[in-house]
Simulated scan of single mutants.
Amino acid sequence: MFNLIAIKDTVPVAPKTFGLSAGTTIHDALNKKFANKLIQERGLALSVYDILTAEDGRVTWGNGQMYYKVSFRLLMFAPFVGEVIVGKVLSTTPAYIRVSLGFFNDIYILRSLLPPNCAYDDHENRFFWYPGDDGPPLDEAGLQNTLKAERFYYDSGEPIRFRVDSIEWHESEPGPPTAPKPVDPNAPEDKQPADEDNDPYDKAGYRIMAAVSEQGLGLMSWWGEGGEEEGEEMEE
């Protein structure tokens, strides 16, 4: 899920920081430039891991900034296809379940990547899985007629284990403006027309498509597990 990549770059340092050590100012300038940025086909840069080399700084005419040629390593978030990860259910729409890792939210479980006997409950605004029996999967009408007490819902905030199914990169380009949809003042907030322009799925430049259709995947509570794995400290 995490790896290091080596990069060479020239980084400017502002004159107001000349009183600090060069190592500190270079590190801060690199983090400002790369941290929390997407690097095409590589992943999400989290922070500078270390600086390998740095040449003597040179001041150029015009702005007084000091420029350093440096080589360094970036800590990247770059999961691989097939990797199993634990996150938390962030939100749900009729098209997908969105999962968060805390620092990265563009993980999507589409309907096609849910296990058999899954359906969307329009009243609960969330997906559910119906374990049923060993017979053939139910159709949509059959699932909607099942007892709620026998359904397993994908609840927001719950730890979920998923497998990376694919990774997608997209160039986001602004489109023509669209007229806002009419709002019904008497309808509840969750029944108002969706703002398609703000759909995070369409706006994400880096998307991870996740699957929970295999044994052991899905909400960890379904398998008698808690959320201790997430965020617990590692002991040597």
Rank of each mutant, 00 (worst) to 15 (best):
P94Y: 08
V86Q: 08
L217P: 07
I208Q: 05
I97G: 01
Q144N: 12
V89S: 03
F103A: 05
A187F: 00
E124M: 14
R161N: 03
P137A: 05
P176W: 01
L219I: 08
A22W: 08
T93S: 15
R98F: 04
R111H: 11
E140Y: 13
E171W: 02
D9G: 04
P131G: 02
G102S: 06
Y120K: 06
A29G: 05
R111E: 12
G57K: 10
P131F: 02
A179K: 10
R111V: 13
A45N: 06
K181I: 01
P180Y: 07
M209R: 11
P15D: 08
K203H: 09
A211K: 07
F104W: 06
F128I: 04
Y96S: 07
L219C: 15
T10R: 14
T93I: 06
T146N: 05
A54H: 05
D139T: 04
T17N: 14
E140V: 12
L90Y: 12
G132A: 02
G135K: 14
V84A: 06
Y130N: 01
W223S: 12
P15S: 03
D134P: 00
E41S: 06
G62R: 10
P94H: 05
L52K: 13
A22M: 13
L143A: 06
R42A: 03
E168L: 11
F152V: 09
F103I: 07
L90A: 13
L219R: 12
G227E: 09
A194M: 12
E225S: 09
A204F: 06
A22Q: 15
L219K: 10
E196M: 09
D122K: 14
D106C: 09
P116L: 04
Y153S: 08
G157P: 07
G175H: 01
P177K: 03
R126M: 15
E171H: 07
E83W: 02
A29M: 07
E233D: 13
L219A: 14
L20G: 12
D133V: 03
S166D: 06
G82Y: 03
A119N: 13
K37C: 09
P12V: 07
K37N: 08
R163W: 00
T53S: 12
A45H: 06
M76T: 06
P200H: 10
T60N: 11
T92Q: 12
M76E: 08
D139W: 00
I107R: 01
D106Y: 13
